[in-house]
Structures are given as C-alpha cells and as structure tokens.
C-alpha cells in the first residue's frame, strides 16, 4: 500500500505521538492515589478522574481522526477491489 511520507505527514505523526504520550503520563495519576474524596457525593476522586480521562481519550482520537486521517489507505485497499 502507498507509504505516506513528506514533512506534513511526519509533523502530524510526531504531534499525535507526543499527545498520546502525554495522555499515557496523565494516566498514572499518582497525585490522587491516596485521596478518597467523593466527587458528586458518590464517586471517589480516583475513579472520577479516570472516567473523565476516558472522555479525554475519546477527544484525542476524535481530533486525530479529523486532523491526521490516513486517506492513502483507502486508495491502497481499492486496488484489491480493482483486481
């Protein structure tokens, strides 16, 4: 399949990689490790943070899908249809 290359593609790949690593670090959440304060009265803060984190992960991938979608893969797969 065609290899995506060029400065634009590489820059986008680098930005996405950095964003994913930042999210990976944010997952460690050592700052609320011992804290049991309830959020909304019933969700311990360690759980509330990670629930919010799930939404952040969805936002990251939504941004990636719209900003760095690998369009070239569609063309490559179409070669199979042509055959």
């Amino acid at each position: 399949m065609p290899v995506a290359s060029g400065p634009g593609y590489r820059r986008r790949a680098a930005v996405v990689t950095v964003a994913a690593i930042v999210l990976g670090v944010l997952h460690q959440d050592f700052w609320w490790w011992d804290d049991r304060t309830p959020v909304l009265g019933f969700i311990p803060i360690g759980l509330a943070y990670h629930a919010l984190y799930s939404l952040l992960a969805a936002a990251l991938w939504a941004w990636v899908c719209f900003w760095a979608w690998p369009d070239h893969l569609e063309d490559a797969a179409a070669e199979g249809d042509a055959r």
Partner: peptide, 23 residues
Amino acid sequence: SASGLIHAAVFFLIGIRLWAHGK
C-alpha cells in the same frame, strides 16, 4: 481507562492498516 486510550490507538494504527492489507 488504559484500554480507552490504547484500544483506540491500536484500532487506528494497526486495525485500519490490516484492513487495507486484507482487502
């Protein structure tokens, strides 16, 4: 929450490419 981040990453980085090769 780890799966939310990593599963989606795998779908994007691995799944779409394997789909293209498969097709």
